[in-house]
Structures are given as structure tokens and as C-alpha cells.
Amino acid sequence: MVKQKIENCSEQELKDLLKEVQAEHQKLVMAEAEVKEESLRQKYHQQVLANEEQGKYIQQQLGKLYQEKAASVQPKALLMRNIARAFLVGGLICTFGQIVLNFVMLKFGLETREAAGIVSVTVVVITSILTGFGIYDEIGRFGGAGCTVPISGFANSIVSAAMEFRREGLVYGVGAKIFTIAGPVILYGTIASIVVGIIYYLVG
């Protein structure tokens, strides 16, 4: 069966076709099983694989037809609303950070870079406490990416995972699951820094 023909089939035709392919598969497998000679076996096996490929393709085609229907009843994404919320919440977190930054720089006479580190730590600590009290997940549900992207989202993912899996013990619970989301961030951040380092070493 050529792919083009399958593409033009109706849903019912595809279903019938799938049954045919299924019935054929069983026969082919038996044929392959019965053959003793290795070269012949290879030949049959190729046929089995081709049959499986075809079945998969029909299945996908059926899925495609279905997904077109599904798309028509999908609720509208609340794009503008979510964007507004992300802007508001993300902006406010950064504004809070900026106020702390100004305060730290003024009070301790630190330069921006060191002060920024203190701001990050402050935000991490506050987020952790909010997560502990079960408040940050509510903010996150409202703010979406506005709550995920700032470092508070990073802290929240660490603390929530640690809390969630405390019941599974300190080693395989807290210890392992704490890195569920933080792990990839740290890992790929580190890899990226190595790449930057290598390039800088060679170029700079």
C-alpha cells in the first residue's frame, strides 16, 4: 500500500485497512517463524517490519483526522490574560528585588554585583517560606511564567519537591527528588558555562 493512497482514505476505510494489516501481520509472523533458512527469514522479517510500519502509519493517519476534530472543540487559550498576569507577577517580583537591591547598596555600600547576590538569596528564602506555607503554588497558578522564570520559581521547584517527597524518606525521597527540576537547570547551566569557558579560553 502506498502512502499516498492511505492519505486519501476516509476514516472508515482506514479502520478497515488497519484490520487487514493486522490480519496480515499475524500470517507474516507465522511464516517467519516457520522458515528455517536464515536468508529467507531475513526476507520475511523485512515484510513483517514493512507491515508494522504500515500499521503505524494508518494509525497516525487516523489520529490526524481525529485531532482535526478535537482541535475544533478545544477551548481558546487565554493568551492575552495569561500574558498580562505573567507581566504583572514577574514585574512585581523584580520590582521587589530592585527595592531590596537599592536598600542593600545604600545601606552596606555594596556594588551591584554583590548586592544582586544578596537579593537573589532574599528572594529564594522568601519563596521557600511561602512554599512551605502553601502560598506560592496559588501565586504560580495565577502568574504562570511570571512565577516560573524568576529565581523564585527555581527555589519553589526545589522546595516543593523536597516537601512533597519527605514521606518517602530523607535519601530517596527528599535527597533524590529535590533535583527533579533543579537538577536539569544546574546541569545544563554548568554545561553551558563550560562551553562559554572553552570558547572564551580559545578566543579571548
Binding site: C94, T95, G97, Q98, L101, S120, P150, G189
Partner: peptide
């Protein structure tokens, strides 16, 4: 200021500046 350091891209900045 904090508008750029707090988002996780700022975390990336720390990594990059550190390595440099």
C-alpha cells in the same frame, strides 16, 4: 538591575561571568 538579575537568565549570567 533586579529586573535582569532575578530571572533565571540572570543565573546564567552569573555562570558565564564566573567562568570568564
Amino acid at each position: 538591575g533586579a529586573g535582569a538579575t532575578l530571572p533565571l537568565s540572570g543565573f546564567g549570567h552569573i555562570l558565564a561571568q564566573g567562568v570568564i
